[in-house]
Computed example of a mutant assay.
Amino acid sequence: MSFTTNPYAQAGWASHDSTPSIFSSPAVPSIHQFRFTNLNPNILDCTVVGPRSVPYFRVTNNSPTPNFTLFQNQEGKSIAVIEWRESTGPVVEVRDIIRKQFVATWLQLSSNRQYRFMQVHDRTFVWMPKGENVELYTYGTGSPVFYAKLSRTRREVVLDMTSAAVQEGLLDCCVVAGVLLQSGRLIE
Rank of each mutant, 00 (worst) to 15 (best):
V179F: 00
V175H: 03
R154W: 06
G50I: 08
V28P: 05
F36K: 09
N67F: 11
P41C: 11
S143E: 10
S110Y: 03
L39F: 04
R116G: 08
E168T: 05
L70Y: 06
K77N: 15
D160N: 13
P51E: 11
S163A: 14
G50S: 10
P55K: 07
L70M: 07
G184K: 09
Q33F: 04
S111K: 08
S151Y: 06
S53A: 12
M1F: 09
R154G: 15
L181F: 06
V81D: 01
V158S: 08
Q119S: 12
G184H: 12
I43L: 06
R154L: 13
F3I: 11
E86Q: 13
L39Q: 10
Y137D: 01
G140K: 09
V59K: 00
P129G: 14
Q101E: 03
A165K: 09
I82T: 00
R95I: 04
L39I: 13
N67R: 14
K130H: 14
S183N: 08
T153L: 10
A165L: 08
K130E: 13
P20V: 08
V54L: 07
D172F: 04
S30L: 13
F68W: 05
R155N: 15
Y137G: 02
T105Q: 09
E132T: 15
I98S: 00
H16W: 08
H16P: 01
Y56E: 09
V179S: 00
G89L: 00
Q182C: 13
V145N: 00
F57A: 02
S183P: 05
L44V: 02
Q167M: 11
I43W: 03
V49N: 11
F57V: 04
A177K: 09
S18T: 11
L170V: 03
N67L: 14
S21W: 03
N73S: 02
A164M: 06
P66A: 13
V91G: 00
V175S: 06
I97T: 06
T65A: 12
N62E: 11
T4Y: 10
T5H: 12
T37K: 15
S2G: 15
L171M: 15
F57C: 05
P26I: 04
V158G: 07
V120P: 00
Q74C: 11
G140H: 08
R58E: 06
S53I: 07
S87C: 03
L150H: 15
H16E: 04
R152N: 13
S18A: 11
S21M: 02
Q182E: 14
P64G: 09
W13H: 12
T47Y: 05
E86D: 10
Q119G: 04
N42H: 08
F23P: 02
W127P: 01
E86T: 12
H121R: 12
V176T: 02
L171E: 05
E135W: 05
S2H: 10
P66C: 10
A177F: 01
I79Y: 00
V48K: 07
S143R: 11
S2E: 13
V158A: 07
Q167W: 02
S163K: 11
A104G: 07
D17K: 08
T5N: 15
N112L: 10
C174H: 01
M128E: 14
